[in-house]
Design a protein around this nucleic acid. Sequence first.
DNA 1: TGATTGACTTACG
DNA 2: TCGTAAGCCAATC
Length: 119
Amino acid sequence: MPIILIMELKQSDFFNDVFEVVKLIPKGRVTSYGAIAKYLGTARSSRMVGYAMNASHFADQKIPAHRVVNRNGLLTGKHHFATETRMQELLEKEGIIVSNNQIQNFEKHFWDPQTELAL
DNA sequence: TGATTGACTTACG
DNA sequence: TCGTAAGCCAATC
């Protein structure tokens, strides 16, 4: 990934905000695309959050994109990782049970930025 | 320049 | 309860 492209990514405030929130997700917790979008004030553009995650691979490797799943706790984004099991492995390493591409006790692990960051 | 396509969510029939 | 449609907006064709 050329630095120029990274800088172009940084031009998007929305992406930047998404990255900031994702980086704040505590270890062993997960959140959803919609929750992040809602926190940013654009609940309807949750697709953009997913898009931002796609770009996160190139923008900043420290972004725990594996902690972001869809609102059902389904690992819909796992294809975008190096391997299909990578996302699950990372989550399980943090104590989250993943079965059949879905996070178990999702509600327990759910981390709502709007609530946790108390805006 | 305009159309299509998403790591999604919500609303409606 | 389940399927379909619409809305969001950046990126790609």
